[in-house]
Simulated scan of single mutants.
Amino acid sequence: MNYKKKYLLFLLIAISFASIAQKKTETQSLFEYQGRVEKMPDNKAILIGAASSVSFDFIENSCSVSLQSVENHQNYVSIELDGNYIGRVRIEKGEMKTYPIKVSNSKKTHHLSIYKATEAANGGVLFGGTTAKLAESSVSKKKKKIELIGDSITCGFGNDASTIPCGSGDWYDQHNAYWAYGPVLSRALNIDFVLSSVSGYGMYRNWNDEHENEPIIPDVYENLYLNKDSSKPYDFAFQPDLVSICLGTNDLSDGDGKKARLSFNEEKYVSNYIDFIKTVYKHAPNTRIVLLNSPMVSGERNVTLVKCLKKVIQAFENDKTHKPIVLFEFQPMSPKGCGYHPDIADDKVMADQLIPYFKKLLNEMSIPKKL
């Protein structure tokens, strides 16, 4: 083979590899990710946090997706097609499997979203791609953004007993973050969202741990997987206009009633809360923060919780850099989900209470500051 032929062969191979690389890049750009997600090679991604998602547009009516629970147990995802919820799917442990998406309408282009129904503590769900013919997204990318920080309530713990009754199966078999109050209000307001929440965790202690053996939300917030693994930090590329914090239920809890439990430490709770807000501001300096009480805390405990939240707000009263921190109090509720958690109907009630308030705050964020 002479030099000229070798050169042409090399050129063809180079062009081929460049074309493949470009195609992979173009394909990846057609997938839209939201929430705590780790992007992997070959157009794959791990859905980590509750209600983290992958969305895409596709042409015609043929579509299936490849999904895998990366842990040695089942996980769940919720599917939305053309803006309509079509159900929660159980992803069994083991190898990656293909799940067909039933398309019943005759639209030329469809929009599919896959939301992780379980939470970060349940391990990731690996999205392995789709057989569908992808199209450029028709969904507007210029939206307001909100981050919702919390515990099991924010995760959607125990809210969906439609297939497995409360008390049956594993503790996460009734999780459906798609119907948690945060995603519900975000869809109503047409805003992007991320949930940074872990069931059982608190601001200074957890449901059944005095911060001795388990981390708390401030310990894991800056880590992508919301665990103690700091080797994969969260990049905070998502810059929320509003940050909602709903933590205190577990700090005020009596735990399981068997393990020794100290009295609630107001000073420690308030101190940790103040430090945590400073962490939030470090990563989202232009956001506005809203503190929420808990629909699972009532009576004197709620009085104590609200008093502590007001002390936290008072600590920032001279802060001229950020918009004032505000407090929202839920109306009293008797939750009807598993383990005295809100069910889907309760989550909607919570969302309905928050929607007008959050809409007002987001509109205020749009008003330019006076010079």
Rank of each mutant, 00 (worst) to 15 (best):
Y115Q: 12
R88T: 15
V303A: 08
K370E: 14
K142P: 00
D151W: 01
K307P: 10
D319Q: 08
K5N: 10
K360C: 03
T27N: 12
N250D: 10
H341I: 06
L112V: 08
S253T: 11
V89N: 09
L224Y: 05
N272W: 13
S16A: 14
I13C: 14
L226M: 14
S271E: 14
V125E: 08
P295C: 03
K39Y: 00
L371W: 07
E300T: 12
Y7I: 13
I149Y: 05
P218I: 01
F236G: 01
I13D: 00
N2R: 06
Y273D: 02
L9S: 12
L247V: 01
N265F: 02
P218M: 00
K24Q: 14
L185A: 05
E364M: 12
K369W: 08
I216V: 15
A237T: 10
K93C: 05
K23V: 02
F316P: 08
S199R: 09
V312L: 05
F276P: 11
I79M: 15
M365Q: 13
N122M: 12
Y76C: 02
K145F: 02
S199Q: 06
P332R: 13
S55F: 00
N75E: 12
N75T: 00
M96F: 08
V220T: 13
L371T: 09
L224M: 04
K142G: 00
E119Q: 14
K258F: 08
K133D: 12
K143G: 02
M333A: 08
Q22M: 09
K39P: 03
Q74L: 09
V270E: 00
K133T: 15
K268D: 07
N213W: 03
N159D: 15
C166I: 11
T154G: 07
G167C: 04
S196I: 01
L30G: 09
C338P: 09
L262P: 09
G83K: 09
K307T: 14
V89T: 11
A45T: 07
A14V: 13
Y99H: 13
D229N: 15
K107Y: 04
S366M: 12
T118A: 10
V103P: 08
K6A: 12
P324I: 11
S231V: 09
